[in-house]
């Protein structure tokens, strides 16, 4: 399935991937009563945040992420991966780390788990990072900063 106006988009793969992410988050919610927010879980696993999620549970989730990606990688015989250079990765990583802790969540916690609960906080948080994300890419493009290969 393709979209005529956006030939490079992968709407069906995106939808199937999204449903899997939703099922994963539903499993955390209904299975052990916790939010599948990756930034919070990663911080919990590494001892950078306190939460009621046991650290072993946090590590199990964090280790699962690349394992699941590995299954898709092997099944598809490769995945496109256009990453920025180390300098940009360090700057972006630092900002993402600080921002997600101050903002109490990221794309998964606020975007997936919070918005679906119609949480006012999560809707505002998601709008905030969408707006600055769009603005950052627009400004970088206007400056001619081509970060991806």
């Amino acid at each position: 399935m393709t979209l005529a106006a956006y030939p490079d988009a992968a709407p069906l793969a995106g939808l199937i991937g999204g449903v899997l992410i939703g099922l994963a988050a539903a499993l955390m919610l209904l299975g052990i009563g916790r939010i599948a927010g990756v930034s919070g879980i990663a911080a919990r696993a590494t001892g950078l945040a306190d939460s009621s999620l046991p650290r072993t549970s946090a590590w199990a989730f964090v280790i699962g992420l690349p394992l699941g990606a590995l299954i898709v990688l092997v099944a598809k015989g490769g995945l496109p991966a256009n990453f920025a250079s180390p300098v940009y990765l360090v700057i972006a990583g630092l900002i993402v780390g600080i921002g997600t802790r101050l903002g109490s969540g990221c794309t998964s916690g606020h975007g997936v788990c919070g918005m679906s609960r119609f949480s006012q906080r999560s809707i505002i948080a998601t709008l905030s990072f969408m707006i600055t994300g769009i603005g950052t890419v627009a400004v970088m493009n206007a400056m001619g900063l081509d970060v991806l290969p």
Binding site: L65, C106, T132, M140
Partner: peptide
């Protein structure tokens, strides 16, 4: 909440990565 999320969005925009994909992409 709003400032932290806005900051996160800037980092997200710079490299196109948020925490989940960053960790998953380790493989």
């Amino acid at each position: 909440l709003i400032g932290g999320s806005a900051l996160f969005g800037i980092g997200w925009g710079i490299a196109g990565l948020c925490p989940g994909p960053g960790i998953a992409a380790l493989v």
